[in-house]
């Protein structure tokens, strides 16, 4: 498992508005004594982790556990179609296909694994039938057309492909949104909100919270 531990959050302070941050530190210092408070907010496993920055969901070049090389490549292409690179990196670049393989190997059951393999094979089969080439080798637009047919249960795809695909897509979304990039760039990640406010304008966040 690749775990690049990154640089500290640019100004851990930014997690809280400054006055609240000061208030919190003062309260902690009072409660714990200044050295303990400093340890807790700077060096402790807990808050350091809460305020730290890392990247990448899953192992970069480890061999796949569930998928063949061909299947993994198809899934990589699917990742690029589902969550492409925009102003933030896409799912394929972040290795989400490998995360999904790992997740299927350990967190999902045998049926989910079989279904995932089935839907990837079905895409490859349709590609060969239509263009006499593998799915991953199709032109981008042809890949997209096949994926759209799959979601719409048409042109050779039925519910037996659609629902396993949705499950796979859900794993892609989960894998991406739980990367550092997904959680903090596409979504808004707020490890220490400093308290709860029941009503704020959506535009003040501009994005969905990670949680």
């Amino acid at each position: 498992m690749q775990r690049r531990s990154g640089t500290p959050l640019p100004g851990a302070d930014s997690a809280l508005p400054d006055p609240r941050r000061r208030q919190l530190l003062q309260a902690l210092a009072l409660a714990l004594g200044a050295p303990a408070a400093a340890r807790l907010t700077a060096g402790s496993a807990s808050l350091a982790a809460a305020l730290s920055w890392a990247d990448s969901p899953a192992g970069a070049e480890a061999p796949a556990e569930v998928f063949s090389e061909t299947q993994l490549e198809i899934l990589r292409v699917i990742c690029a179609h589902v969550i492409p690179a925009t102003d933030t990196p896409g799912a394929a670049e972040l290795g989400v296909h490998r995360f999904v393989d790992h997740q299927l190997a350990h967190v999902e059951d045998a049926e989910a694994r079989d279904q995932a393999c089935h839907v990837l094979d079905a895409l490859d089969g349709q590609a060969r039938e239509r263009r006499d080439t593998g799915f991953a080798q199709l032109a981008y637009d042809d890949q997209r057309a096949l994926l759209e047919d799959l979601e719409a249960e048409r042109n050779g795809f039925g519910p037996g492909e659609k629902w396993p695909f949705k499950k796979l897509k859900d794993l892609v979304v989960f894998g991406y949104c739980t990367t550092e990039t997904g959680a903090t760039k596409l979504l808004a990640f707020d490890p220490v909100p400093g308290g709860f406010r029941g009503s704020i304008p959506l535009e003040s966040v501009g994005r969905a919270w990670f949680s």
Binding site: S46, A49, F174
Partner: peptide
Amino acid sequence: GVPPWKQEFG
């Protein structure tokens, strides 16, 4: 406070 990307299975 361990974020999901620091947990093996999210």
